Amino acid sequence: MKDHDDLRRVREEDPYFAGTLAKGLLILQTFVSDPRAHANSEFAAKLGLSRPTVSRLCRSLRTLGFLDHDERLDRYFIGPAAVTLGYPYVINTPMLGSLRPAMQQLADRIEGAVSVGVTMDLDVVYVETCTYEEGTLKRPGVGAVRGILETAMGRAWLAQLPAGEREAFLSRVRRERPDEFTRCSEGARESVAHYAKRGFAINLGDAGFGVLAVGVAARLHYGPRRLLFNCAVPGLRTKKAQLLDTIGPGLMQLVGAADRQSGLR
């Protein structure tokens, strides 16, 4: 998450950058990584803003419905207007409606979860997930955020980047998220190195969620962003051979069908 110093640097580079708007959005973004209720002082400390500034921003966001306030605790939590912002994005995701039945069939067959996401800065944002209902795998719901290096679909996206852009991205993760880089960079590089031959990226559990996964980057775009597909299964009952021989090819087949339906070959 960016803070006040980051905003100042951006404003110095771009005089048209709306700093006040950005500060308000940073308050809302706080809930992505920490969804509990927050006090003004917590926002101020996390974002490097003054408490009077935070008070004004929170009052405005509360008036517009993006924040709610617990008078007893004197803390803010995310409001319903924040949910409405994501709805148009999800319902307009290309091919999503027609793909859901195939995604659910694959999820049932592998007894796991099949997801679609897009990249946002250093993260992947999930826009849909279909899950095997009798399984125990935790479902990443719409709007869930995971680090690009932590997900197989994020690694598939990484494999599509030109080498120079990819190294610049990895350097940034190393600098801004050292723990994530330490856990996941080796697995991410392995996926990138074998993506062209396999046709999919893999995650052997180094994200720390006890989950194995494969990921494919579709040729289909949503605006400037590729649609990314992920199959995740519980690591306790899945072997690497299953990822390579069954689950990965199954996801490739689904993504290939989506590309063909959209007119991409």
Rank of each mutant, 00 (worst) to 15 (best):
M1G: 11
H4L: 08
R11S: 08
L26N: 07
Q29G: 11
T30N: 05
S33N: 10
P35M: 04
H38S: 07
N40D: 11
E42F: 15
F43C: 00
F43S: 03
L47K: 00
S50V: 00
R51V: 12
S55R: 11
R59S: 15
G65T: 08
L67M: 01
D68N: 12
L73K: 14
L73F: 03
D74G: 09
G86H: 11
I91L: 14
I91P: 02
T93V: 13
L96R: 14
G97V: 05
Q105I: 07
D108C: 02
E111P: 01
M120E: 00
V124C: 10
E128P: 02
Y132V: 06
E134K: 13
G135K: 10
V142D: 12
G143K: 04
G143M: 05
G143Q: 02
R146P: 00
L149Q: 02
E150M: 15
G164T: 14
E165M: 13
A168V: 04
E176M: 10
F181Y: 15
C184H: 02
A188M: 09
E190A: 11
E190D: 10
R198F: 08
D206K: 05
D206M: 08
A213N: 05
A213S: 15
A218L: 10
P224I: 08
F229W: 12
F229E: 04
A232V: 03
K240V: 00
Q242R: 12
D245P: 03
Q253N: 11
Q253M: 13
V255D: 06
A258H: 01
D259P: 10
R265M: 10
